[in-house]
Simulated scan of single mutants.
Amino acid sequence: MIKILIVDDHAIVRSGLMSLLNDHTSMEVVGEAAEGDEGIAKALSLKPDVVLMDLSMPHGKDGLSATAELKKRLPDCSILVLTMHDDDEYLFRAIHAGASGYILKNAPHEELVSAIHTIANGNAYLYPTATKRLMSEYLDKLKRGEHSDIFDTLSDREKEILGWIAKGYANKEIAEHLIISVKTVETHKSNLMEKLGLRTRPELVKFAMKKGLLTFE
């Protein structure tokens, strides 16, 4: 069961989303909020798996600020931005703030459900046209010789877990150190290994040493 918190300043939108999502046996809307500060408070109390976050909320904290603060205070909570803004600037700012996904309010409800499942499983989701634009921009950079370091694609939490793994700690030990679940550690480990294209612990150790994550006293 995926626990969901809805943060949107329009009551009718919250009501519609709640009715739609509660129809799915794999999902439960555990709370709602009308602005960012209330959303953060509800999230800290309810510990949802996924937060649906609107960007434009005129009263209280806006969606971008709320996303950034929520990721600092609940790093294992996945945030799906649900907005009317089909705009690259908003998209990049949302990702930079820590959002796991970005979807438009005019998307079919099947796409919204799919996006929620995607980010709840520890993956990222972007609506199709945004993905196409990002790919085009990346290919343009490659053509111009602007290669980025793949290490920079890792989240702060993934980098942290990479360091613990390289030092020989088991998933359970890492979970205890970071005060998160073993399942969360396993998800982050799977994601970072996929991003880095690595398959074995020796490869992880070698990569971590190159990046200065593994030191010996």
Rank of each mutant, 00 (worst) to 15 (best):
A99E: 02
V81L: 03
L104M: 11
A66G: 09
D86Y: 14
A99S: 11
L91H: 01
S136F: 04
S100P: 01
A124P: 03
E137K: 15
D152R: 11
I116H: 01
T83E: 12
D49C: 11
D149T: 08
E32R: 05
L196Q: 02
E38T: 11
S114C: 10
K71M: 11
I119Q: 00
M135K: 07
E173D: 13
A66T: 05
D156K: 11
E194H: 10
S19Y: 07
N106K: 09
K61H: 15
Y125E: 00
L192E: 01
V113Y: 02
D140Q: 15
K183E: 14
I119T: 04
P108A: 08
V50A: 05
T184S: 13
V113T: 06
D86L: 14
T184P: 03
L198V: 05
K211M: 14
M1D: 11
L52E: 00
Y102H: 04
D86S: 14
S26M: 09
F216T: 05
E176S: 11
L104A: 05
T118A: 02
D8G: 03
P48C: 04
K42G: 06
V50M: 06
D54H: 10
D8L: 08
E28M: 09
H59A: 15
S45Y: 14
E176V: 13
A68I: 10
D8A: 10
K141P: 02
D152A: 05
G197P: 03
L44S: 07
H177E: 15
K47Q: 15
D156T: 15
V81N: 01
E110S: 09
L20I: 03
G145W: 04
A94K: 04
D140W: 12
C77F: 02
R144F: 14
L126V: 06
K189L: 15
I40D: 02
Y90D: 04
V205A: 07
D62L: 05
K71Q: 10
I179D: 15
K167L: 05
D23V: 01
G36F: 02
K72C: 13
L196V: 01
S148R: 13
I150N: 12
E137D: 15
M135P: 01
A124Q: 07
A208G: 05
A107P: 01
L5T: 00
T187C: 03
D49Y: 01
S148C: 13
V50H: 02
A41C: 13
K42F: 08
K172Q: 12
S114T: 04
V50Y: 01
T187A: 09
H117N: 07
G197D: 08
L214I: 08
K42M: 14
K195I: 09
I174A: 03
D9K: 03
A99Y: 02
F207V: 05
S155Y: 04
F92E: 02
H59C: 15
Y138S: 03
H96C: 05
I2M: 03
A166G: 03
K206N: 02
E111R: 04
M84V: 10
S100E: 03
L213K: 10
D149Q: 11
L64D: 00
N171W: 04
M193G: 09
D140F: 09
A43V: 02
L5Y: 00
I12Q: 06
L162F: 07
V29Q: 00
Y102A: 08
G122R: 06
T200V: 07
E217C: 05
M27F: 12
E137C: 08
